[in-house]
Design a protein around this nucleic acid. Structure first.
Lengths: 364, 364
DNA sequence: CTGTTAGCGCATTCAA
DNA sequence: TTGAATGCGCTAACAG
């Protein structure tokens, strides 16, 4: 079976291919009668113009690339859904790519997407500077950064109020009476992570509290170095979690924190993947949350209210983030005026994983 | 900035475009010396062959379409990740599409993907017969069905042992002593849902138990009819859940079940989205799980062990499902021999949401 | 061993 | 108001 092309339509309608093209794209006047004939032929043959051929001719492929670290992360899943919904409305298709925060993979994808003549790029960039990304930008491919910013890339960014959200979270813990607040954080190369730790520091400072640096542990996965974690001798990782990004390190990171002579009474976890590890670690130690240690997490989950205890979180407008970024990108592609947006607001959802510190647990 | 094309490379290397093409694709012998020159030119110009132009010429776009109901459903998220990982290894890119079980949207996507000359299609089809899908198949576009089968479509299917999994689940409940087992199920047009209910019936029959049909409630979203639910007068939906597929109906469905004069002592929920609704409903009624009612769900979640109580589930190899389906599709595209696979095995993960029935709760 | 050229399916300029 | 012809960037005969 051979595809029906514009020629077939033209022939059946008794007009030239130019005319068919013009009625299809409404790009020059065509007599109503002719238009009808063309339309009929199109319908009869169930003609679908080839996006590929059109792409070659117009240099517009109606395709955008979406690069995230891992679509399996519920945060990015929701973002991706928002992106797809919005883009679809404008006639674009979305190619999705997972980098696992690996710069090599990111660059590979970038090259491939470039070769595909994507009309635009939506990216939650891995933390370090990327020449490939710079090249894309230099080639005038519209780019909108999602959630985080790549160093040395001057392009639109749609983000959330990370610093403010963290500030709120810590403030809340402080108001509950906590003084020793631990942080399980991700890669320092990721701007959101930096901002969230900054929010932590500001809240502590504003409360006149000193920051004990040993209370801040980095649990982000070291790219390409998955196996270098040093497992806790007494608490091996539950098997099924090992394939989740960052979760293992968070698991071990928390154990580190809990081994401290003067351990924290509350933990701020800077993303939901790490929270998984943290909660498992807590469970293994038979520590009750929030009784023994309060937990607050950045980023909500649909299932968080069902946890034991229901998790208190800083919730982000994930779906909206995707929609808005996509919308900005479409404007960029169309050469419409587009102004940078303020960070999207974030909301503290107080559920049951935080309470006043229990002084008994502070020193063992 | 204008893109560098094969001509530029040919010129710089002092050879014809044919030669460039051939060294790039390794499609005919080229003298080592010439090959070197070409390679140098390619590197110097950072040449990337246009996938679009190549697609026009070869009728192969290195693109496959992935159609699911909702990527936001963790089941499909994991599947999508598996698909992308596998496909990426073979040089394919993945375009993802969300139908929300809406046949109109599915057909729209199908048309668009066809127009894009996708090399293959991976689809978890909405339940009803689709002419558009038939057309795709008739046009010889390789298709692999994911998770479920479309009626009237004769193409490969990679699925899980739904019937057996459900059988195991119900058997387990029966072995615990349950006799009145409720089912919260999805759309009957979806083959997995049918199979899971069939497993339920077989387990009941094998145990010599009669099936009380009033104990089976359908909670699947009616496509395009989102707002027609009849909310329970006493228990309005928690606001944040309303945008989740199927969850609301499951929520109301469970209330229906609980309003029964002789209510079930255990509930089998046939997918994880509905489980969310069920657990919320239980919580609202102040019913303890598993004390008052046991719950078992088809499909696991990373967070299920953290629930209160940790959820007992039938776990499916989601990521593997995606990988395998993608692998089958690639074989199909390459015209390699491909044989239908047996349903992937499924595993009962007993955690803490099921226990022996408490007879006090049976009649109010 | 390599070059020339037609053509993939469309948009578009130039004519008419 | 419409058609003919060119070219987008590449592959694949065909020719040499």
């Amino acid at each position: 079976m051979t595809r029906v092309s514009i020629k077939d339509v033209a022939q059946r309608a008794g007009v030239s291919t130019a005319t068919v093209s013009h009625v299809l794209n409404d790009t020059r006047f065509v007599r109503e009668e002719t238009r009808q004939k063309v339309q009929e032929a199109v319908d009869a043959l169930q003609y679908q113009p080839s996006v590929i051929a059109r792409g070659l001719a117009t240099n517009a492929t109606q395709t955008i690339g979406l690069i995230v670290s891992d679509i399996t992360n519920p945060f990015f899943t929701a973002v991706a859904r928002g992106v797809e919904d919005e883009l679809n409305q404008h006639g674009y298709h979305t190619i999705f790519c997972n980098t696992d925060e690996d710069h090599g993979r990111q660059d590979d994808y970038l090259r491939l997407l470039f070769a595909r003549h994507i009309d635009g790029l939506l990216i939650a960039p891995a933390g370090t500077r990327s020449d490939e990304l710079t090249r894309m930008a230099a080639a005038n491919i519209p780019i909108v950064q999602l959630d985080r910013a790549a160093p040395g890339l001057d392009s639109l960014l749609v983000e959330v109020d990370n610093e403010g959200g963290a500030y709120q979270a810590i403030n809340y813990l402080i108001s509950l009476g906590h003084r020793r607040i631990g942080v399980v954080r991700g890669l320092e190369t990721i701007t959101t992570q930096k901002a969230r730790v900054a929010g932590y520091r500001r809240a502590m400072a504003d409360a006149g509290l000193l920051v004990d640096e040993s209370l801040i542990v980095r649990a982000g996965r070291r790219p390409n170095n998955n196996r270098s974690l040093t497992p806790h001798p007494d608490y091996p990782m539950p098997a099924r979690l090992t394939n989740l990004q960052m979760t293992p390190n968070a698991f071990h990171g928390l154990h580190e924190l809990l081994d401290l002579p003067n351990r924290p009474t509350a933990i701020f976890v800077t993303n939901n993947q790490m929270t998984l590890g943290v909660l498992h670690a807590l469970k293994e130690r038979n520590l009750r949350c929030p009784k023994d240690v309060s937990v607050i997490s950045f980023d909500d989950l649909d299932w968080a209210p069902l946890f034991s205890p229901p998790l208190t979180v800083v919730s982000q407008p994930t779906y909206e983030l995707g929609v808005i970024a996509a919308r900005q990108l479409v404007r960029l592609i169309r050469n419409e005026p587009v102004e940078p947006l303020a960070p999207l607001p974030v909301k503290l959802l107080s559920r049951e994983s935080c309470c006043a510190p229990n002084d008994d647990t502070t020193g063992h």
